[in-house]
Write a protein that binds this DNA or RNA. Structure first.
Lengths: 137, 137
DNA sequence: TGAGAAAGATTACAAATGTAAACCAAAAAG
DNA sequence: CTTTTTGGTTTACATTTGTAATCTTTCTCA
C-alpha cells in the first residue's frame, strides 16, 4: 500500500482536481487551482512533478499535452486519512465525530439509507474500549 | 478560530496524548510516546515547545513540573480536519467514505442510535451537487 | 547543602514543503 | 519555416518539520 501520509497538503489539492476529473492535463489543474488559490502556474507544475516522483501520479507521455492519472484512488486516500485520524480515538469521540460529520455533509438519500443499513449491522457487535486504552500501542 | 492545519503530524501525536489525558506533564507525554514511537525525549520536548509557540498548548507555570493544557479541543481539531477532508468532495463519495468509516470504527450502541437519528433528520433535506461542482470555489 | 536527576530552554541541522523563476522543447500561429 | 506560446524540466531559496544534542535551571535525596 502507498503511504498517503507522505502527500503534503498542497499536493493533496492537486490530487483532488485530478481525482475529480478522473485524469487531467496540467493546464486543467492549473486553471482550476488558479481560481481557487493564489498559486502561480509554476508552483502547480512543481507540485505535479513531486506527485509523480512520489508515485501518486503518472503521466501518459505518448501524446503531447501529457495526461496525468492518479496512481492512488481518492477512496483509498480518504480512507487512509480518516482512519489515521480516527485510530486511537476512544469510541465515544468517534461516535460524536461521525455525527458531527454527518450533520455537516450533504449526502444523498440513497446513501443515507445505506449508511443506516451499515449501522444496523454494526449494532450487533458494538463494544467499546475506554479512553486510556486508546493511548496504548 | 485556530488554524488546525498548521499543526504538523508529529505535533498532532503529542496533542492526542494531552487531549486524552485532559492535561499532562511533559513526562507523561514522553512516557507514552516513547512506547508508541521511537522518538527521543528531546524530540518530544521540542514538539511540546512548538505547540506552545503555535498556541495549541499552554503551560501552567505556577508549579514546577509544568502542566500542559490544550488550547484547542480535540473535537474542534477533529472536526476541522475531517471537514477539510470532506469539503469539496462530491456527495456520492462522502456517502461512501462515511460508510467505510463506520465499517472500520468501533462505536457504542448508544452512539449508533444517535447517528441513525441524525441520519433520519438529514433524510428530509437530502440533495446533491454533481462532481464538477465540487471543484468550484 | 551539595550532587545528581529531571524538566525546561536553546541551538543545530538535514529533509520536506511552499513558492516560484528560469530554462528548454514541442506545438500552434502567422 | 520562423516566431510565439504552451507545457514540461531544472534550479532556487526561505520556511517548516523531523529529529535531537546540549545547556540551564530546579528538584530531590543523601
Amino acid at each position: 500500500m502507498k503511504e498517503i501520509e507522505s502527500m503534503s497538503r498542497s499536493e493533496w489539492q492537486v490530487m483532488r482536481i485530478i481525482w475529480t476529473l478522473g485524469q487531467a492535463t496540467s493546464k486543467q489543474v492549473i486553471d482550476f487551482l488558479e481560481k481557487k488559490t493564489d498559486w502561480k502556474a509554476a508552483t502547480i507544475k512543481t507540485l505535479i512533478g513531486r506527485l509523480q516522483k512520489k508515485n501518486f501520479l503518472q503521466a501518459d507521455e505518448t501524446k503531447r499535452p501529457y495526461i496525468y492519472q492518479p496512481l492512488v484512488s481518492e477512496d483509498e486516500a480518504i480512507h487512509d486519512n480518516v482512519n489515521d485520524l480516527f485510530d486511537n480515538l476512544c469510541c465515544m469521540r468517534k461516535g460524536y465525530a461521525i455525527k458531527d460529520l454527518i450533520n455537516n455533509s450533504e449526502i444523498s438519500k440513497s446513501d443515507i439509507a445505506e449508511i443506516i443499513e451499515a449501522l444496523n449491522e454494526k449494532k450487533k457487535s458494538a463494544n467499546c474500549k475506554n479512553k486510556l486504552a486508546t493511548l496504548e500501542k
